[in-house]
């Protein structure tokens, strides 16, 4: 393989159809094989209904996140990848900080990629489950709208769940 001349490699394979995905956040472009990109139901619908031009603009998803999404799609488009390989690869993709995971889950949701949505949601759940409440509020951008009395009452309702929890 390594000894094969470069031009022979180009000549032997018929040209694969590719799509260009463009992050509208930082204008980064990614050229992806069509069958890889079609794992996104959103992109598939666009292609099927002839709404996709040469460049598919992807709003609200940064290049960094889009690269992760494409990595996921590439792995899962590889027919020779074993289930174990995929699991390991998925674990690598979601081994990120919580804010990247939130961006990733939003991207998976927007692009409608079920498997990526699942592994990312699971990782988010695992990452937040033992965090202090104030950290969780910050991550999810929610405010504590309880009065201290109300919060104490809700806590008392499920006091067993708070054993050993600050």
């Amino acid at each position: 393989m390594a000894s094969a001349p470069e031009n022979e490699k180009n000549a032997s394979a018929p040209e694969k159809k590719t799509l260009t995905l463009k992050s509208m956040i930082n204008n980064e472009e990614f050229v992806v094989d069509e069958h890889v990109a079609l794992q996104s139901v959103t992109i598939k619908n666009m292609v099927d209904s002839d709404c996709a031009g040469d460049v598919i603009p992807v709003p609200t998803i940064s290049g960094e996140i889009l690269a992760l999404v494409i990595e996921y799609c590439k792995n899962h488009a590889n027919p020779s990848a074993s289930e174990d390989d995929l699991k390991k690869a998925d674990a690598g993709i979601v081994a990120k900080d919580i804010y990247t995971l939130i961006d990733l889950v939003l991207a998976a949701n927007f692009l409608d990629i079920k498997g990526l949505l699942e592994v990312t949601s699971q990782k988010i759940a695992d990452s937040i489950k033992d965090l202090p409440h104030q950290d969780v509020r910050e991550i999810f951008g929610v405010e504590n709208d309880y009065t201290p009395e109300e919060e104490a009452a809700v806590r008392a309702e499920h006091d067993w769940a708070f054993e050993g929890f600050p």
């Binding site: 889950v105 949601s121 409440h133 929610v142 709208d145 499920h158 769940a161």
Partner: peptide, 26 residues
């Protein structure tokens, strides 16, 4: 910030105990 269906999906993946604690978030 996060669509409700995504949040619900995350919630369903939490163990019961941790989920109950989340009732105190807001």
């Amino acid at each position: 910030y996060l669509p409700q269906e995504v949040l619900i999906d995350v919630f369903t993946r939490l163990p019961t105990k941790n989920l109950l604690r989340c009732t105190c978030i807001c």
